[in-house]
């Protein structure tokens, strides 16, 4: 479980996060949603330790990040898996080498054991024939799956995903969403997803935090989104006619 309390972060005098508090639950897909500029990327990067908030605390299962030593922080980061928006695969390495990377860096496993684990996770993300391909030789959807495989190969406790569906066709996007949800439940991971894709919200939003102008405007589940009267989230989610109709249908029963 990740708990954030009263997080504030500014850049060049502009306050981006204005005191955000939330709890990201274990074994659930926790979504951070909001318009561009609402502060969701800054919040995610603060959770990852890439940005340091000026005010507030971030706790990983009771471990307050700012109280940890540099060594403890690095140790904690080995418990984190991250799926970047652009996949961030190492382009000089093959798919298998990319996935094996965290194991080679942080475990004492021999090559045989590493190979077996790599085979297992690549199979888990339904990529069996891509071991020796370079990231540039596979599609965007496959790259995302490799990135997921790399993120989970070292059995992380926490999984962070930044816009996991951006640039993907609807079928592949749903596949990636479902894969993230399955993995979260299967390995009991605390998953935090930063997205503005409403399909993802409706598909896997077990817990949703809506940010607006650096503040938490709303919090709930995907079912509660249909019933909420909160103006901010209604404007954001139902800006599309399709979702308006879905909501009307839902409310009519």
């Amino acid at each position: 479980m990740i708990t954030i309390e009263n997080i504030e972060k500014s850049f060049g005098g502009t306050k981006i996060l204005k005191g955000v508090s939330a709890v990201f639950e274990t074994g659930k897909t926790n979504l951070i949603i909001g318009q561009s500029g609402s502060g969701k990327t800054v919040l995610l990067k603060s959770l990852l330790g890439i940005h340091t908030p000026e005010v507030g605390t971030i706790s990983f299962d009771g471990r307050v990040y700012s109280d940890l030593s540099s060594e403890e922080k690095r140790e904690l980061r080995t418990e984190i898996g991250m799926l970047f928006q652009g996949s961030a695969l190492f382009d000089s390495m093959t798919v298998a080498e990319n996935v094996a990377f965290p194991l080679k860096m942080f475990t004492k496993d021999n090559n045989n054991k590493i190979q077996k684990r790599v085979d297992f996770v690549l199979k888990r993300v339904a990529l069996v024939d891509a071991h020796n391909k370079l990231p540039s030789e596979i599609s965007g959807g496959m790259q995302k799956r490799v990135a997921i495989a790399r993120a989970i190969v070292n059995n992380p406790k926490y999984l962070f995903c930044d816009e996991p569906n951006s640039g993907l066709d609807p079928n592949t996007a749903t596949l990636i969403d479902n894969l993230i949800k399955e993995i979260t439940e299967e390995y009991n991971i605390t998953t935090v997803i930063n997205t503005h894709d409403m399909n993802s919200v409706m598909e896997i939003g077990e817990k949703i935090i809506f940010l607006k102008n650096g503040l938490k405007e709303w919090e709930g589940t995907k079912e509660e989104i249909f019933r909420t009267d909160n103006e901010g989230i209604v404007d954001f989610v139902y800006s599309s006619n399709l979702f308006k109709k879905v909501r009307e249908a839902y409310l009519k029963g």
Partner: peptide, 18 residues
Amino acid sequence: GSMRVTEQIDALEVMGVN
């Protein structure tokens, strides 16, 4: 620089690699 642009350096840092 390309690694910086494509977030590969961020990926290393997030993993706990110096």
